[in-house]
Design a protein around this nucleic acid. Structure first.
Lengths: 191, 191
DNA sequence: GCGAATTCCAACCGTATGTTTGGAGATTGG
DNA sequence: CCAATCTCCAAACATACGGTTGGAATTCGC
């Protein structure tokens, strides 16, 4: 039986994604991560140093994926709505991603991999700016609002239970696109 | 020295608010809550049963406060923007509140005190509906988006670091009000 | 005013948890 | 082919943690 160190590292990472997304940093258990990965938990320390090292590696590997390759294509408010829709679909395809984003903010004092993430964010914000003809600051704030509206469908399910019980994913997606479009409209008019 | 059971209960509750808001359910420590409250940690079990009992009591005591007494006063999109502004100010005055809301969604399977919270949410949604002339469903979805945009300023600080670094509270408040107003505008036009 | 009930705390308990260790199998270099 | 090196695991370790206990101080019922 040959050894594949890259594979064990990868297994630990994806198990970490699942476990940290579900339980957060404080709630996740190293034992459970090892079991989920199908390797001995001691491997975590050889590959990632300690629990926090694995957590940071997990966040660094996932969080860029929220915006990477996304943009407001075309021009006008609809471009902003479409961006939100694409982001929404991405979060439904990878539900661990928004939850990791939420845990990061609640449990860490500093954003992970910030130098790599900022340019991606700036690029998407710039695409909003050119689609709507708005300035950098306004486009950036709009992007921030759109992201939180999108990810909240995954990160704040209990709030949905309280405010809009029984909302379907499709209904929420339509509302998110509509609200992002509305924000895009206000940017277009202000400009 | 007289005994004041209501006071010790209250001390535990407010200490629980602080500790759970800061560290979440899994991350908070019963010892720390007792120390924060200035009473023996055993008191937690006499008054609230166990750690989860205290957590639920904390959530039940706080979460209603996000929307209680709030409404979209007047008519037109500005009423929606003002609602968002008032909600934003409330969250800045009580920063523990939005964080507790976030922990609840991430760590619990069921919303706490849902029967008491739903009517409050429905009332605020109705005020949006009458201010904009929109139907129940659209107003409810709008309220949901507005809440998440408001609370995210507190609950997702690392995301702000990545997307809009250096944003001041005042600048973010203005953006939130603008975006809520934009959503209100779209509701008004659709109706 | 006195016995029963209540509030409270210090110390304790059992276990869960992050981390380390020792050594057994696999791989590599020469 | 063999010694050094590396991967991996089972077991152990120290401590942190949620929860309990026994008894002292205080209050309550009468």
């Amino acid at each position: 039986m040959a050894w594949d160190t890259d594979l064990t590292r990868e297994r630990l990472l994806t198990a970490g994604v699942r476990q940290f997304a579900k339980h957060g940093f404080a709630g996740a258990r190293i034992d459970a991560i090892g079991a989920d990965a199908g390797v001995n938990k001691e491997r975590v320390y050889r590959y990632f140093g300690n629990k926090e090292g694995l957590f940071q590696a997990v966040l660094a590997s996932q969080l860029a994926g929220l915006l990477d390759g996304l943009a407001a294509h075309g021009s006008g408010p609809a471009a902003v709505g479409n961006l939100a829709g694409a982001m929404f679909d991405r979060c439904e395809a990878q539900p661990d991603l928004p939850r990791l984003l939420a845990w990061e903010s609640l449990e860490l004092d500093h954003a992970v991999g910030i130098d790599a993430r900022r340019p991606v964010c700036a690029g998407v914000a710039a695409s909003i700016g050119s689609a709507t003809g708005s300035d950098h600051e306004a486009a950036t704030q709009a992007l921030l609002s759109i992201i939180v509206v999108v990810v909240s469908w995954t990160t704040l399910p209990r709030l949905t239970d309280a405010v809009a019980p029984g909302t379907s994913g499709a209904a929420r997606r339509a509302a998110v696109v509509a609200h992002a479009t509305a924000i895009g409209t206000s940017l277009t008019l202000d400009a």
